[in-house]
Design a protein around this nucleic acid. Structure first.
Length: 881
DNA sequence: ATCGGGCGGTTTTTT
DNA sequence: ACCGCCCGAT
């Protein structure tokens, strides 16, 4: 299979021109007169770009010009003669970040002529290193990389082999546990005894078994890639020294997202020279749930004594009000490194806050607002400026009679002189000023969870508003793509048993469980691959009937494909251990710029001859056409590569949506996906307790979880450049059930002075900010504060709104049967109390342990819950639904 | 061997 | 409400 230099060959194409130049221009940088690239940096940026030696932590807030600074720093490293580009290790978290940095570097006024060969993700760099020293980890250098899907399937096998009921102990859960261990750089023998109880007391045993299985398949999962490198470095100090000397300077982006394994990886490499520059923002750490340790960044100065810390705080992205709102929220978090964003620009628009009746209306309002903004107005400003129109006059009359909220036929809320009543808008602002007209692709809707997306898609389809969903099912994760890839994998390495299993009966070849068992048995008896087992099973007559004939054809096909591949790539014979940078350069230089496309034709043949294409052509379901399209796209993507091996390696580490259309569309994506992006107009819907902050985060991680949610809120707001609109709904369908929602506690945390409330009175009674102090637990009783908000939904304004809703079933919001308990009010419960939990329903308190309760739920069994997230319930008979 | 109905699970996402 | 998975019926 492919080796570590092949992605270089791919990336190499883009740098081919500078490549040939590099042989002459050893200085590595051209176009830089002295240090001109430092000129347009602000003082902090400049300091960070010039502090080249020793450990440096660059705390770069959102929109503070981090990448620009990094570019200058890299140029500086090279120009000052401290390092050649290939002696700089630049690590990013995602491929996207690596690609962007590479492109950005290419666009600089100066040019680093040699490529930064060691710029990439933790994983891709690890693979590079690991392919050279695979045998030290018990692998061959052509090991395959399993993705999550393979991983789960393998784990299922391990669980079944251990005679465990896979129903009660699902593979996904085991995968989560093992991933967690790998993230913390724990090998099976290192797992602390305190965690021995994991997975029915057999976690470590299964972990060991899984690792054995992987090794016998010559495969590694994502976690292994990092873990093995760490293990090798620890076990072979001489080798580590080599790499320490090779990477004279280390740059790390998004340091707040690193997990323990990545931290150790970096620390090992940086140990000698300590020339490590970590860039990050503790306030944007939002991946704790998958093992990221904010602690890494908080601890930096202890890890690297004498480290410099430079803060980039001048923000070039957002207006003053937006920054102030974001800062106000994040200030509620404890244990920050501390950073205050400021801007030299103006205050701009206030952050706008609006409540709606339910999720559908929220989507409806945002859709209309998006349309209005295109014309440079706002739905609300619009209505007002149209005060002469008939409906508006009627409404004005109604308002004059004391009605404060009305609704037009479309169900829109018309807002009266709310602003003046609430004194939240500068006096005399008779209109809501909208800075300018915005294009749809300047707008984004950022949601907490993908389940929220559908309401918007539904609505936008109805009104014909073009939208784009980012982060849907990834191209390379689609079934048809994975099937096709399995064919390619098997053709490249006929011993790839996982690939064999996946496609031996796809399309249907009459090979069911029975036949596949025979193949497995035969292969195991001969200690050989499934393909060989199949060959023998057919030849020896162990397998008969029409399945056998099909299987024979299948085996023959694979043989033929494999031969074709072997014939086309003599390079496979080269020993990867010989590779070093110089050799790679020669290789890249000799790559013909115009590939002949033999491997593309072969891929087409494979898909044809296997009957896979025919399978979808015969499929009458509506998705079939799309799947065929995707397969075409896959084949097309192959053209970018030299051979199938290189392609497979690339895909193993990368997943991206390949089709990127250009037309004007509003973007819908999750807050997580939005990190690092910016939009002039941002909508942040669904700010409701339980949804955002997410109930589950809080249940699972308590205060820590809440703080991560808060950082997510911070990330969301700081995506906005000019206009940021937060919204919430009073009712929402969750898992098919209608639930009444309470506005997010984060809304209370927004600084009043930076927020403009567009919500009709009554929808948010008690006045904005009435509940301030909740969550900070400094103020008075949160119980009261929350109760006040719950009452909002029984207020006259709310009722009226409800009556007028007309076109929908009016489901009376459930009355609060319970009082919400303060996060810290543990003593509020006794053993035996009846409690309610948003997700698990009703139950009785069994045990109290610090701030955690053990609750026996009626339906969900016994769970440990943080006390703040259950509420006292009236009595056992009082069960709703 | 293959199709369909019932059942449980259900965030966020990368590599 | 929806999706994927497993088992029972064809």
């Amino acid at each position: 299979m492919s080796r570590f230099d092949e992605d270089d060959a791919f990336e190499g194409a883009a740098t081919a021109v500078s490549q040939s130049l590099s042989q002459r221009a050893m200085a590595g940088v051209a176009g830089a007169r002295g240090t001109a690239y430092l000129d347009d940096l602000n003082p902090a940026q400049r300091e960070a770009a010039e502090a080249l030696d020793g450990p440096l932590l660059m705390l770069a807030g959102a929109g503070t010009g981090k990448t620009k600074t990094l570019m200058a720093r890299i140029a500086n490293l090279v120009v000052s003669g401290r390092a050649r580009p290939n002696e700089i290790l630049a690590v990013t978290f995602t491929n996207k970040a690596a690609r962007e940095m590479r492109e950005r570097l290419a666009r600089q006024p100066f040019q680093v002529l040699e490529p930064l060969r060691w710029m990439g993700t933790f994983h891709s760099i690890s693979v590079k290193i690991l392919r050279r020293h695979a045998e030290l980890a018990g692998l061959k250098s052509n090991f395959t990389i399993l993705d999550t899907d393979d991983q789960i399937r393998l784990m299922k096998q391990v669980i079944n082999a251990a005679n465990i009921d896979e129903k009660r102990w699902p593979a996904r859960q085991l995968a989560g546990i093992i991933d967690g261990w790998k993230n913390r750089a724990l090998t099976p023998s290192n797992v602390p005894s305190s965690e021995a109880a994991a997975f029915n007391n057999r976690g470590t045993e299964l972990y060991a078994a899984y690792q054995d299985r992987l090794r016998s398949l010559n495969a590694a999962d994502f976690g292994d890639l990092l873990l093995y490198v760490v293990e090798i470095f620890k076990a072979y100090p001489d080798l580590l020294t080599e790499y320490q000397q090779k990477f004279r300077y280390i740059l790390v982006d998004e340091y707040q997202d690193t997990n323990v394994a990545q931290y150790l990886w970096l620390r090992l490499l940086a140990q000698g020279h300590r020339n490590i520059c970590c860039v990050g923002d503790d306030d944007q750490s939002i991946y704790g749930w998958r093992g990221a340790e904010v602690g890494n960044i908080l601890r930096f100065e202890k890890d690297f004594p004498g480290a410099r810390v430079i803060r980039l705080e001048q923000n070039y992205r957002s207006t003053g009000h937006i920054l102030a709102a974001a800062s106000g929220i994040i200030a509620k978090n404890a244990g920050r490194l501390g950073k205050t964003l400021w801007t030299a620009g103006g205050l701009g628009e206030k952050v706008r806050l609006i409540g709606r009746w339910d999720g559908e209306e929220e989507a409806r309002w945002i859709g209309e607002e998006a349309e209005a903004l295109q014309r440079g107005s706002s739905v609300i400003a619009n209505r007002r400026s149209n005060a002469r129109s008939k409906t508006s006059i009627q409404e004005s009359e109604r308002l004059a009679k004391g009605g404060r909220v009305s609704q037009n036929a479309a169900g829109d809320i018309h807002v009266s002189n709310l602003m003046r009543e609430q004194s939240l808008t500068p006096a005399g602002a008779g209109n809501i000023p909208i800075p300018r007209g915005f294009g749809l692709d300047e707008m984004a809707i950022l949601v907490r969870g993908s389940s929220q997306m559908r309401a918007f898609e539904d609505r936008f389809l109805t009104i014909g508003l073009p939208y784009r969903v980012v982060g849907g099912p990834r191209f390379y994760e689609r079934a048809e793509i994975r099937d096709a890839m399995a064919y390619f994998r098997l053709a490249v390495s006929p011993t790839d048993d996982l690939a064999f299993e996946r496609i031996v009966n796809t399309p249907k070849r009459g090979l069911g469980d029975k036949a596949q068992q025979v193949i497995q048995m035969t292969a195991r008896a001969d200690e050989t691959s499934l393909l060989e087992g199949a060959r023998y099973a057919v030849a020896s007559g162990k397998l008969g009937g029409k399945g056998a004939a099909e299987l024979r054809r299948f085996v023959e096909n694979v043989d033929r494909w494999h031969k074709a591949i072997a014939a086309a790539s003599p390079a496979t014979a080269r020993n990867p251990a010989d590779d070093d940078d110089e050799l790679i350069e020669l290789d890249e230089a000799s790559v013909p710029s115009a590939h002949d496309h033999a491997h593309v034709r072969l891929a087409e043949e494979i898909l044809e001859e296997s009957g896979y294409i025919a399978m979808w052509q015969n499929d009458k379901t509506p998705e079939a056409a799309g799947r065929l399209e995707n397969l075409k796209e896959l084949v097309k993507a192959l053209e970018q590569f030299e051979n199938l091996q290189g392609f497979l390696e690339h895909v193993a580490l990368i997943s991206e949506n390949s089709s990127e259309e250009e037309s004007e569309k509003i973007t819908i994506m999750t807050l997580h996906a939005a990190k690092g992006l910016e939009f002039p107009v941002v909508f942040l819907p669904g700010w409701e307790d339980g949804l955002f902050p997410s109930q589950r985060s809080m249940d699972e991680s308590g205060q820590k979880g809440l703080e991560e949610e808060r950082r997510l809120a911070y990330v969301g707001i700081t995506r906005a450049e000019e206009l940021c609109t937060i919204s919430f709904a009073g009712n929402r369908q969750v898992y098919g059930r209608w639930q009444s929602q309470m506005p997010s506690r984060f809304i209370d945390e927004l600084p009043e002075a930076d927020v403009e409330v567009l919500t009709p009175p009554g929808l948010y009674g008690g006045g904005y900010g009435a509940a301030a102090g909740f969550g900070g637990n400094a103020g008075g009783s949160s119980v009261e504060a929350r109760a006040t908000k719950a009452d909002v939904y029984n207020s006259p304004g709310w009722r009226r709104l409800q009556d007028r809703a007309g076109n929908r079933p009016v489901s009376q919001p459930r009355e609060s049967r319970h009082t919400v308990i303060d996060l810290d009010a543990v003593s509020a419960f006794d053993v035996g109390d009846r409690v309610f939990h948003q997700k698990f329903g009703y139950g009785h308190v069994q045990e109290i342990e610090g701030d955690k309760l053990a609750v026996a739920f009626d339906k969900a069994g016994t769970k440990k819950i943080v006390a703040g997230f259950v509420v006292a319930a009236a009595d056992a008979d009082d069960v709703p639904f």
